[in-house]
Structures are given as structure tokens and as C-alpha cells.
Design a protein around this nucleic acid. Structure first.
Length: 566
RNA sequence: UGGGGCGUAGCCAAGUGGUAAGGCAACGGACUUUGACUCCGUCACCGCAGGUUCGAAUCCUGCCGUCCCAGCCA
């Protein structure tokens, strides 16, 4: 299977190569990976990369991927996050079958292994304060100093550790440390903390424990217990690998997993940091973890992004060891590509401008056939009502248009999509001089959009019949951050884009949209991809713009005249 | 002379000694009842300097740049 020469190069990366080599050399008999989130927040686009990598690679090699919650710190973890993560991984399209685990499932074994280490003289209980430990750890360029308790007898450490577990000491009073090397160049090897006292209830184990293992003491062993063959994580854990290996070398673990690191995903105009996203939610800067502007999976889902688009995006970005920042446009491209294929076409006018066809009979209405998808005949057609009074897009009219503007303007003939050719006769203004409506005439011989005499028009506009239009709220989103490299100036919050949300309260959409359901993407022709928001109410739909269509006119305009100040 | 990584086009990224894939963006053009889509075309001497070799992005040496690590977070 992986021998297919036609396999897309984008699907080739060093991890896949490594696994194939391990299989070929007989180092592993099958592939078992895991996605190990800490339930202290919602999953974001960065996690999507890890999920697709771990589940993807396991699937390719007929292996399996576990979902394992890394729940070793009860002070930060919550059941809500466990539920959200479960939901999001499923939504992305992956299935862990029966292999749902928690690091907390292994607390008993981990505790026993800690005692094992103590008995073997490889760990000791340290009575120093957190400050003393920090102070004696040394710096990046200076070695650390031994703790005065480093030489403590194994029996004494064992007794103390048991009493730690029994709850005899308050938080922070003592810790269990590995006895490795306080002079190691790698700071993670300077007697790292293995267990700490935390009098806190755990979402799963309740009040059973008051000592909890650190990440380092839990992760590798959990991998070993589950028979993980390839433990894939991000680059910042590279320095932990010697410790990961040291623990596995010194414990009677049932298997020997290997850790391999890859670069995490970064995106322009975006921050993928749980710490920061949590802050946005807490401060109320966004409406919640699923605010459509959030780069969380819950956010992009609500925004209307299909999971297939995310999978394809991640596949194209690739996997490597070089830190990189992917252009947000690449993400948008993947979203558009997927939606273009799947989203039915509809018409919706975001900023309505009334248009009256003066030679169209009063009171007459007719139903016009419209295709649901130009590239997919199977999608069928629908009927859209047409009448004397319509709404067109405000941006599609100009009194005094520049050269390249070929939409409506006095004397200009355009096509109304699926409808007729209409000619703008005049613009009518109200008492204040503001544009009120357009008066046009239509050519009855052009029903459907083509002129019998073969004359051409330069523009085709979307529209909605005034009498039957549905009022809708439309929410337009822009980058959460105004600059491509948020935080580069030192303050992330200062870089937030004040215009990331624009609400259009009085949009008009075609009646067929009354039946649109949350999560079902549609394209508003010439505008972009939209999907109904959960805030929708009967008779009062709310649409999120997932992403706009490419707009070469707007681009050319920006290039020529006064380009918008970035 | 702390330890560990990484440097291929504006942005991702293949390539593992035989003469630089692909994608995004950009720019031209074709098509068009979405200024969309689609299609065609243009766009790299591989961080720098030496060296080895018939031949180097790939091997060696030195240099430069950049990222991560001093939580009882993960």
C-alpha cells in the first residue's frame, strides 16, 4: 500500500518514513499511537494537526490510535473539557473504538513504580520549599546544587512518600524527585520532580489521591502500559526525551515506546495557545470557546468549517521538524475548496438596496428555476420567486462608476441571476439625499437570463424578491488579530482586531433558506459560504459567514486606488 | 566552550551524492448566467564560506541566523 508511486508527496513526511523503517526492520510488529490531550481547555487547530497525524498514521499502517486524557493535574482539569474534547475528536472524523484511557487509570501502578524507584535508590523525597528547589536547580549556564535531602536513606524516603500519600503533609511540603544528575546540561535531568502533594479532588478519582504524578512521570509509563509504539509529540518536549527514556529504562515497564517530536502548527493572524484562548474566554473578549472567531475546533465548527477541510488542510501543511508559520490563506483555501464542492447555492442580499422594475406588472410574481450547484447536476434545481420589487446588493450600484466597475449604474444593463436582463433607469433619493431605491426596466424576452438577440452584459447580480424575502441576521467575521504575527509587539491583547465581528441585522435571503439547519453550509452566490448559527430562531435565521469567496475585483480595486491600510 | 533543535521561493514542504516535486500566495491569460469555480502559463543556483568528489541541497570543517529548556504545567 505505501509503495504506490502515485501517492501524493504531501502525504510523505519523516514520521511516516520512520514508522515504515521500524516495521521493515522488525522493531515493531504493528503501529499504536495515541492522542493525549490535557482536559484543561478546548481543542484548537494545532490539536487538529496532532489528531490527524496520530490517527492518520495509525490508520495507514492498520494500527490503532488511543484517546488518552493526560489528567495528572486536578487543579486545572474539568469534566466539561473532557466532554468537549471527546466531541471534537469525533467531529473531526476519528474513532478510538474501545481505546479510551486516562492517565488517572494508571495512578495505582504509577504509585507502585514510584516506590520501586525509591527502593532502587533512584528517587528520594525532598523537603525543600519550591523556592529552594528552584534556587538550587542552577541556571542555563550553571549547574545545580544537590539538595540537602538528596542523600536521604531509601527507607526514610519510602516512609515519607507513603505518608505523603496518606495525607500527612500539606501542599508543597515535600516532593518526590528522581536522583539523576544536578549538573546535567539538560535541566530536565537535574533531579526532576516526579510526585507532588495536591489536596484536590480529581474529576475521575475524586478524593482518592492527594499526591499526583507529574507529566514526566506519567506520560512515558502510560505509553508503555498501553503498548504505544510511537509516541508523537511537539518539539518543546524534545528536552524531555532523555527523561522519558531514563524512566522507562529504570522501571519494570511492559513495553518500550519511542518518543518522536514534530513542529507544532502555527497560523498567521492566529494564536494557538490554550493558555491564551482560556484568557479570551474568561475576559469575555469572545462569547465562549465556540465563538466562531475562535481557532478552536468548536469555534470553526460553529463557523461552518467542514471537518474534511481541516483534514485536507493539515495534510497539505505536512509534518516536519522546522518551526513554521502557515499562511492563514492556506487554511481558507482548504475551507473554500471543500465548501465549493459541497455547498448548495442560494441567494442572499447582505446590504439590501430596493430595486423596482417599472415596466413589470404590478402584483405579478413568477417562479424561476435556479440550479443548486453549477458543477453538480444531481443537486437539482429549486424555484425562486421573482417580482416587481427586489433587493439587490448595495455594493452593486454606483452613481458614477470607475472604469472597471461593470455592475449597476444609470443606463447600465445587467443580468439578474436566473432572472431577466434589467437596465437601470435612475436612482431615487430621499429627502436627505440618501439613496433610497433604484428604478429599472426589464426585457421580458430575456427570461432565464439570455437575450434572444445575443447581446451580452458584463455582470450577473444576485437578488431576492422583496415580497417573499426572509429577514436574516448575518455575522461577518474577520481575523481575531489585526496583524499576522500577534504578540510580536509584546502585547497580544493590544493586537486584537476590534473589527473581527460585523453584524448585519437586516439582510434578506431567499425563502428556500427558511429550512436551513445548523451546520448545513450554503453558498450565497457572489458572497461566500454561510451556515445557520445556533442562535437562529424560527422566522429569524442567523447566518455565519464561514469564509468569503475570492474577490479579484476587490483585490484589483485595493491595488489601484487607495489601498486599505493594513 | 550550558543542553537540545532547525535553516530549500513571500508562506508551507518534498528531496538522503547525479544535476531542485507539490501546495498556498502573487502575477499574466482562457472560460464564465457567481468579478466564484475550472483550466493554461510565469515564479529557486537549496543560510554563508571553504573542502571532498567526475559530480554536493545532499558528505566534511568553520561561521552566521533562529527556536526550545531554569513549573511541585502539559
Amino acid at each position: 500500500m505505501p509503495n504506490d508511486a502515485a501517492e501524493p508527496a504531501a502525504g510523505r513526511h519523516f514520521i511516516r518514513t520512520m514508522i515504515q523503517a521500524d516495521l521493515d526492520a522488525g522493531r515493531v510488529r504493528g503501529v499504536v499511537t495515541r492522542f493525549p490531550p490535557e482536559p484543561n481547555g478546548y481543542l484548537h487547530l494545532g490539536h487538529a494537526k496532532s489528531i490527524c497525524l496520530n490517527f492518520g498514521v495509525a490508520g495507514e499502517f492498520n494500527g490503532r490510535c488511543h484517546l488518552r486524557f493526560d489528567d495528572t493535574n486536578p487543579t486545572k482539569e474539568e469534566q466539561e473539557f473532557i466532554d468537549a474534547i471527546t466531541r471534537d475528536v469525533r467531529w473531526l472524523g476519528f474513532d478510538w473504538g474501545q481505546h479510551l484511557y486516562h492517565a488517572s487509570d494508571y495512578f495505582d501502578r504509577l504509585y507502585d513504580w514510584a516506590e520501586h524507584l525509591i527502593s532502587a535508590g533512584k528517587a528520594y523525597v525532598d523537603d525543600q520549599t519550591i523556592e529552594q528547589i528552584r534556587e538550587s536547580r542552577g541556571t542555563l549556564t550553571e549547574p545545580g546544587r544537590d539538595s540537602p535531602f538528596r542523600g536521604r536513606a531509601n527507607a526514610e524516603s519510602l516512609d515519607l512518600f507513603r505518608r505523603m500519600r496518606a495525607g500527612e503533609f500539606p501542599n508543597g511540603a515535600r516532593v518526590l524527585r528522581a536522583r539523576i544528575d544536578m549538573a546535567a546540561g539538560n535541566i530536565n535531568l537535574r533531579d526532576p520532580v516526579l510526585y507532588r502533594i495536591l489536596h484536590a479532588d480529581h474529576p475521575r478519582t475524586g478524593s482518592t489521591w492527594c499526591v499526583y504524578p507529574t507529566y514526566d512521570f506519567a506520560h512515558g509509563q502510560s505509553d508503555a502500559i498501553e503498548g504505544i509504539t510511537h509516541s508523537l509529540c511537539t518539539l518543546e518536549f524534545e528536552d524531555h526525551r532523555p527523561l522519558y527514556d531514563w524512566l522507562l529504562d529504570n522501571l519494570p515497564v511492559p513495553a518500550r515506546p519511542r518518543q518522536t517530536e514534530f513542529a507544532r502548527l502555527n497560523l498567521t493572524h492566529t494564536v494557538l495557545s490554550k493558555r491564551f484562548l482560556t484568557e479570551l474566554v474568561k475576559r469575555g473578549t469572545v462569547s465562549g470557546w465556540d465563538d466562531p472567531r475562535m481557532p478552536t475546533l468548536a469555534g470553526v465548527r460553529r463557523r461552518g468549517v467542514p471537518p474534511a477541510a481541516l483534514r485536507e488542510f493539515v495534510r497539505r501543511v505536512g509534518v516536519a521538524r522546522a518551526n513554521s508559520v502557515v499562511d492563514f490563506a492556506q487554511y481558507e483555501h482548504a475551507v473554500r475548496e471543500q465548501l465549493n464542492r459541497s455547498a448548495p447555492r442560494r441567494m442572499g442580499v447582505l446590504r439590501p438596496l430596493k430595486l423596482v422594475i417599472e415596466n413589470y406588472p404590478e402584483g405579478k410574481t413568477e417562479l424561476l428555476d435556479a440550479v443548486n450547484h453549477p458543477d453538480d447536476p444531481v443537486a437539482g434545481t429549486r424555484q425562486v420567486p421573482f417580482g416587481r420589487e427586489l433587493y439587490v446588493e448595495r455594493d452593486d450600484y454606483m452613481d458614477d462608476p470607475p472604469k472597471k466597475f461593470y455592475r449597476l449604474s444609470p443606463g447600465r444593463e445587467v443580468r439578474l441571476r436566473y432572472g431577466y436582463l434589467v437596465t437601470c433607469q435612475r436612482a431615487v433619493r430621499d429627502a436627505t439625499g440618501a439613496l433610497d431605491h433604484l428604478v429599472c426596466t426589464y426585457d421580458p424576452a430575456t427570461r432565464g437570463g439570455n437575450a434572444p438577440d445575443g447581446r451580452k452584459v458584463q455582470a450577473t447580480l444576485h437578488w431576492v424578491a422583496a415580497a417573499t424575502a426572509l429577514r436574516a441576521e448575518v455575522r461577518l467575521y474577520d481575523h481575531l488579530f489585526a496583524r499576522p504575527d500577534p504578540g510580536a509587539g509584546g502585547d497580544l491583547f493590544a493586537d486584537l482586531n476590534p473589527n473581527s465581528l460585523e453584524t448585519l441585522a437586516d439582510a434578506r435571503v431567499e425563502p428556500a433558506l427558511a429550512e436551513a439547519h445548523v451546520g448545513e453550509a450554503v453558498q450565497f452566490e457572489r458572497q461566500g459560504y454561510f451556515c445557520p448559527d445556533p442562535d437562529s430562531r424560527p422566522g429569524k435565521p442567523v447566518f455565519n459567514r464561514t469564509v468569503g469567496l475570492r474577490d479579484s475585483f476587490a483585490k484589483a480595486k485595493g491595488r489601484g486606488g487607495q489601498a486599505p491600510v493594513a
